[in-house]
Amino acid sequence: MPKIHGAVTIEKERCKGCDLCVVACPCDVLSLQPKEVNDRGYHFAYPANEDACIGCAACAMVCPDACIEVYRVVVK
């Protein structure tokens, strides 16, 4: 059974904290920063539970501000 490892990078200054990536993620990887804000005052998204990421890119596809890039490694 191959194991999938994923990771996302989020350009935090570009993020507007719309939460759509958090909703789209099937593995509950992402959250909005509860307290910290970026330079424009948004609670930006971050991979709170990054070990669960499978690199499916759902978050990146629904991100209106193109802040997310996705990486994936399949270990056989």
Binding site: H5, G6, T9, G55, E69, V70, Y71, R72, V73
Partner: peptide, 15 residues
């Protein structure tokens, strides 16, 4: 995370 985030593993880029 560092091992995953490498150019060859990128599956979604900012257009």
């Amino acid at each position: 995370r560092e091992e995953i985030i490498r150019p060859e593993n990128k599956v979604y880029s900012r257009p």
